[in-house]
Each structure stands twice: as structure tokens, then as C-alpha cells.
Design a binder for these strands. Structure first.
Lengths: 251, 251
DNA sequence: ACCGTACGTGCAACAATCGGCGAGAACAAG
DNA sequence: CTTGTTCTCGCCGATTGTTGCACGTACGGT
């Protein structure tokens, strides 16, 4: 076991378990707690984890000194992405939509996940290229710039050949009455086409999407298996969604 | 055991095992740890692996295979890219291959160029998204990670529907006798398919490609309209190429 | 307030690294 | 055939990195 490898392992455990206990790791790896502590100290110094008494936690997203709003949005997206990633079964086929939340999902995938990811987003595909074990199938077509995804007739046609277990749908609005909406008609059609090719569709809805509505309707709320969000269930909009029978997956 | 052979073995082990331990390799090959270390050091300098205490790890695709190669001969690539961009007529349809030189071409495109760019590289497509006036058509298919392009049957089929004026072809080797070569058979087939769909094919050949050869043949030198390179025409390889009747476009 | 546990630091032993050196092989030029 | 050059390889010594242990301190639960 190389030192650098061990540190990667620590970071993996942090991502997967959300924490690391120095004593346990020392026992598992068969070395002294001192060494584990030293590693954690170094990783913390590099900003890769947060040191706590007894072990360490993943680096809190709020470590940076960015604009506060951006941090919240990023944190929200990351939470939603992490919850979405947990839904993916090894060996399954997953369709991932375009957009920033979908991109966060790519980064939240476990490093050793073996799965086939289908996407119509070149950005998602490019980001996945750095993942060791995931296979990538890219849906081609006319690329629309505002959201950087392939859409149009050719893309819909290419999507018809796909059969997936899950589809992670990104939208710009989730509203109790208008349902799931987005800003472009062609894109909405593309999202519908992808949704038809998956057994279950989950919506990636970071906080700011909840209660918002955009011009073009994608799907009714009843057409999806669940909405993944980190918005608090106590808000009136969330309660309306719950009353409408929508399954809420809390991140 | 030849030196080059030994280094290939090291890279194979890195791919297969995800790590190499200097001590073990030295014992296995029956030579001193110093030699193994020297090899690892050189490979790391070339961006092909990441040196760590006790051995080496594969270069992460994010920073290594792709990003490190990007560092190498960046000036050369940029010159070639600028010359290639000058060949594009406004209003034409252009196919752009994958790879770092192709990416340089994207950045070298005039900001006000109106053209349709067809590509099977998600990286190229994503980079083009920031361009104001260029339209993008993405060819989908199975994405191969080492070069981050869509290849395979579906991609070839999707390419059949395209008719372009120019194809900018990226290869890893340009040699007077072996012609144009690359490192993957499927990729070579894809490049041939794209070449058939364009009236003229130009090769993007930064200096380090000239005189090099890779396992799989893409096209003979006679099949392309020209080779864009910044290698000096005085070198013996370049003179051999010229004598073989290859059109050289000097950057 | 007390006690067990975790923490950090300094230390010693050991392993790995790096640069330089010289021996030997391969090769070209005279 | 001899000479000189270049490359590779193993070895040496100085340096740096890693590890476990000991000791005093800080922390958290009871």
C-alpha cells in the first residue's frame, strides 16, 4: 500500500461514509493511529477534509470565501447530487440530463461505480471521461448553446435506441400547478423523450428551482418517480407538492 | 529487455494494477531499484504517470493524459491551429476531430465566424458552446475515454448523414511510409468515416507527430488534401513527405 | 471535577529519493 | 582495429519522507 494510495482511500471513505474514524482506519489498514492522524492532518491542511476529534469529515463546501449566495447554491446542488448518486445501482444504465446540477452529479459519482451513463450533454460526457469505471454513451444532435445539450429530431431519434433504469432530469422550475418546466421547447421535448426511455425519472431540484416556473412544460409531476431536493419539507410549496402526491426525496 | 520495452511494461502495470511499486518491479525484472526509479521519473516528467513515494500511480486522466499533453508543445499546436482556422470559409461546414490540437483549433476560430461545426468530441462541443456564432452538431455514440471521442458503429452511422467541406483530422503519427496512424482501431475507423464525409481532409500535425507512427493506420498520405504543420521543411522526414507528393501547409 | 481518550510534538529507526560517479556495452568515425 | 562518444546501469552518500513510540497536553463525556 503506497502512501498516496492510502490518502486516496481516506478521501474515498470520506465521500462514501461522510466520515472517517482514525482508530477504525488504523485497525483496518494495520498501522498506527499516529500515521492515520498524520494523514488526516495533511489532508486537512490541503483543504481536502475537515479535522474533528476522533477522525475527520469531508471538507465542508463552505470552506471557500466565495460569495455567500453562490456557496449556498453550490452546496444545495452538491447535496442533491450526492443523494441522486446514492440512487444508482452498480451495473445499471443511467441517463443524465444537462445543466449544472447534472454536472454536480457526475462529480458525486462514487469513484468505483460501474455503470453505463447515457447523456446528451457534451459537458457531462467530457466530465465523465476522467471517471475510471463508468461507460459513456453520448447522444448526438444539434447542440443548443444556452444549455449545451444535443436536442432536435436527430437527438430524439438517437435516444429511442436507449433503455435505461434511471433518468436524472434537470429542469428550471418545479411548481405544484405548472409541474416541471424549462426554458426551451425543443429541450422540453428532448427531456420527454429521455424520460420515456427510462424506467424511473427523478428530478434534480436544488432549492432555487422549487416554486419556480418556466415557459415550456416538460412533464406533469405525476410522471416522475420522485423529486430530489434539499429544500426543507416545511415550506408551503413543499407541502403543496407533497399533498399533490409527489414523492419527495430529501437530500 | 529493451529500455523502451520496460517502460511500456511499467505503463501496462499502471493501467492494470492502478499502481507500481518500485521495489517489487526491481525484484521482478532483476534490476536495481535505481533503474526502475529512473524510468518512473522519466515517465512522470513526460506526464505519463504520477510519481509517489514508493512507486507511481497512473496519471489521472484529468491532469495527466490530457492536461499534461496539453502542456507539451502548446506553442506548436497553437500555430497549427491558427493556420487551420484560416482555411475555414465563412458559411461552410467543418468537421473537427477530437484531441488537444483540435481543441486548440476551436480556440483559434475567429470570434465572428459563421459556420457549422460537426464533431464527435464532447470536449470540442463543450468548448464551442461559448462561441457566439458557430453552430454545433454533435455526433453521438460510445465514448472512448483515452481520447474522449464518440466512436463505434452508432457514431459511424450518425456521421453518414453529414456532408462537410472540410475535415480537420488529428492523428498521433505522420510518417512517410506508414502514413497517418493512431492508437486505437475503432478510432481509426471513425476518422476514416469522417474523412469520407468531407470534400477535403487536412491533418493537424504539430511537430511531435511528424515522423512518429502508432499501431493503427487511419489513411494513406495520398488520401488527404494536406498536412498542416509547423515542423521545418528542411528536416529529412519533411523532405521525404514532400517527395512522396504530400501537400504541406506550413504554419 | 474527574478520567479516559485523542492529540501534537519530538525522537529514533528505517525506507526511499536524488545526484553524481564509474564500469561496461553499443556504435560511429578514423 | 582503435579511439572517442553516448547510453545504460549499478553503486555510493547525502538528503528527505515515513513510521511507531513516548510523553505531556487538550478534549469530551460522566
Amino acid at each position: 500500500m503506497l502512501v498516496a494510495q492510502r490518502r486516496d482511500l481516506l478521501l474515498d471513505r470520506l465521500r462514501l461514509d461522510g466520515r472517517v474514524i482514525a482508530k477504525d482506519l488504523a485497525a483496518e489498514l494495520g498501522l498506527s493511529e499516529d500515521s492515520v492522524r498524520r494523514d488526516l492532518r495533511d489532508l486537512a491542511a490541503a483543504g481536502l477534509c475537515q479535522r474533528v476529534y476522533g477522525g475527520a469529515l469531508p471538507a465542508s463546501p463552505a470552506t471557500g470565501d466565495y460569495a455567500a449566495r453562490q456557496d449556498i447554491a453550490v452546496g444545495s446542488k452538491r447535496k442533491v447530487a450526492a443523494r441522486a448518486a446514492a440512487l444508482i445501482q452498480p451495473g445499471s444504465t443511467v441517463i443524465i440530463d444537462g445543466g449544472t446540477t447534472a454536472l454536480a452529479l457526475v462529480h458525486a459519482l462514487p469513484a468505483d461505480l460501474k455503470a453505463l451513463v447515457v447523456t446528451h450533454s457534451p459537458t457531462v460526457a467530457a466530465a465523465l471521461a476522467t471517471h475510471a469505471t463508468v461507460e459513456i454513451y453520448l447522444i448526438g444532435g444539434r447542440v443548443f448553446k444556452h444549455s449545451v445539450v444535443a436536442s432536435g429530431a436527430a437527438a430524439v431519434e438517437a435516444a429511442e435506441g436507449v433503455n435505461a433504469d434511471l433518468f436524472f432530469l434537470g429542469v428550471t422550475g418545479v411548481h405544484p400547478r405548472t409541474g416541471l418546466t424549462t426554458g426551451d421547447a425543443d429541450e422540453a421535448a428532448m427531456k420527454r423523450a429521455l424520460s420515456r426511455r427510462a424506467a424511473d425519472t427523478y428530478v434534480l431540484a436544488s432549492t432555487e428551482k422549487i416554486g419556480a416556473a418556466s415557459p415550456f412544460s416538460v412533464l406533469p409531476l405525476t410522471a416522475v418517480a420522485g423529486i430530489i431536493t434539499d429544500a426543507p419539507g416545511t415550506s408551503s410549496i413543499m407541502q403543496e407538492l407533497a399533498e399533490a402526491g409527489t414523492a419527495i426525496v430529501t437530500a
